[in-house]
Design a binder for these strands. Sequence first.
DNA 1: ACATCTTAGTTCAGACCCTCACATAAGCCG
DNA 2: CGGCTTATGTGAGGGTCTGAACTAAGATGT
Lengths: 378, 378
Amino acid sequence: MLLRTLYFDGPLSRNELTKVTGLSAATVSSMTGDLLAEQIIVEAGQVDSDGGRPRVLLRVDPSYGYLIGADVAETHVRVELFDLDMTERARVEYALRPARHEPELVARHILAGIDVVLADAGVSAGQVLGVGVGVPGIVGPGPEAVVDAKTFGWDAVPMGALLRSGTQLPLFVDNGAKTMGQAELWFGSGRGAGNAVIVLVGSGVGAAMINDGIAFRGVSSSAGEWGHTKIVAGGRSCRCGGRGCLEAYIGAEAILDRAGVPTGKAGWMEEVSQVLDAGGPVVDETIYYLGVGLGSLINLLNPDRIVIGGWAGLLLGERLLPQIRTAAAENALAQPYAAASIVLGRLGPDAVALGAATLVLEDFLNETPLTSRVTAAG
Amino acid sequence: MLLRTLYFDGPLSRNELTKVTGLSAATVSSMTGDLLAEQIIVEAGQVDSDGGRPRVLLRVDPSYGYLIGADVAETHVRVELFDLDMTERARVEYALRPARHEPELVARHILAGIDVVLADAGVSAGQVLGVGVGVPGIVGPGPEAVVDAKTFGWDAVPMGALLRSGTQLPLFVDNGAKTMGQAELWFGSGRGAGNAVIVLVGSGVGAAMINDGIAFRGVSSSAGEWGHTKIVAGGRSCRCGGRGCLEAYIGAEAILDRAGVPTGKAGWMEEVSQVLDAGGPVVDETIYYLGVGLGSLINLLNPDRIVIGGWAGLLLGERLLPQIRTAAAENALAQPYAAASIVLGRLGPDAVALGAATLVLEDFLNETPLTSRVTAAG
DNA sequence: ACATCTTAGTTCAGACCCTCACATAAGCCG
DNA sequence: CGGCTTATGTGAGGGTCTGAACTAAGATGT
């Protein structure tokens, strides 16, 4: 936890650490002593004295350990190696042919990728704190990390077990959209917010909710299904079988569909930009419906920040953030709206691997140093 | 925390406590020893031995301390005294004349009520662990407990400070609907659920959300404004100024309004029962819209239990709970719906004082014994 | 140049909480 | 009535944190 503050609040002197953490100077001194001895943190210059002894700044050593993040996407498996500063040190990508998403193949790619990025960066496996994997679909809790992903034809795939057989490294598996939210929360636009809501608009529509720094997971870890919130009772029909779902208005396919653009053929995603650039009533309506959804979220959850992400969300936000803010204001109560700043995600749609690596980082910052870590995230 | 398990999970032996809390037998033994010495807990019989030494059951002594709850309502101020079992020991009620809601008057009633219930039950002020107050409107955080309540004409009323000048007892002030939710969660239908959502339908519509045992408060403690979630974009206009809010369909006034019954005159609340008993499309629609709202909540929050409360919610639920369940199922995804049981509140609409007393209890169970408690809930 | 002041960081005895290992209590069983 | 079983109490010891006293390293003033 001391490590956590040092990590996030940049280089700090021991003295400042006592103020920030509320611990006594004695505790900070001995704890930092241990961390220095273990080489987890290093000294980072001094700060001019203002009359007394100068303060020695401490920071986490970015090369103390490394994190691996994997992004299992529709068209490829990408594996990236990061240092503790989340600077990318190596990456490798394996293309997936359409409809060739066998779990074993994906697992082989990930395992091979781990070896490749380690070799490329000249990092030994012993220095790696763990491997995070972002996959599509729903991930069950526990070390098995059972994955159900309709788009891949995966049904109860024990991704954790598949990978476990090929590596000793600690493993963390979670839904790719959630890892992206995680990345945005820790290193993107959500940084510093205690009550953030990360809104992900892509083909599907989801939300990650943070209350007082703690993620809202729900009883079976499936909280965040924002897309099937009904905003027009009896409205457009949705692929979930219902009518009037938010996703049926602002999901990427829904935008194109309302604009009369077919979504079946390859490359349809490119069309979204064109539709948005063209403007017109379809775009106005999209903003309006997004505002309706955001307004309800603001009322219900009273966040201090809303981060708009997901590839379609970013396309929308880049062009129309002020309009989105206005639409949200018109659909929220004044008091909670005033407390919420609505911002655009900063990491772009490629942050899945970064977010997956963040799962490892989170564990690293939570654990007592030098305890073995062999869990899977739910 | 040991106290907490003892309180909720009834009489338990020290041995069972080790299993439930995960603490060692040694710790439990010495801790319970302290609690026994302080008379917070007492022995409560034994359990037949199955071969070995019989287990001694321990439970919280209901007369160790007392809790006072106050309900500041439209027509009255009620003050109730409870023991730690939440058994009511005394109550007193002061009528409020219409439009006579001066903060000073209310505060005087509460302070007088405290003296009266103590005298009636023969309890000394020293035995009281604190006073909880449920008020209408929005309560600010901090010991000032600043209250804004439009219906009372209150604007930034420092209720905490007003009461503080008249009593030494620890004070806790919160919104009455929230205290009702709290009561339902701890002692009513929400008991035992870790991820409950308490839905309150009265004149207004709100929700209290619990994630993993922790209340979702939001950045300025105003989370839970469920009523102004838009369910029919561009629909009925709502008193909040928006259109298509949930409250404009299922709020008590909205139900009557849609049934063509005027809501201005005194006693209009009685009419709701009649409208609901009469049945017809207005009732069907109410159920439908409630189902839409519940379905969205279930998707977004993935609760294990939804408790329907509030006076209008109870009237609806008593008659039509199966239909409400069906309507929610039709508007939620199958997986989260299956995880959520939808039940009716059990405490009735008069549980505000009980819930207010629960604020005190919560504090008592959180604090280390014998530490002074002088805060106000936000 | 040197004492003095100021602020930063260290050391150490001790409070507190929890656990392990063992002792003790209190019932059944033959 | 001794042995078995299970429940509870006790005391040494490890870990974590703190207060108070101590040392370190610079600025400042004469």
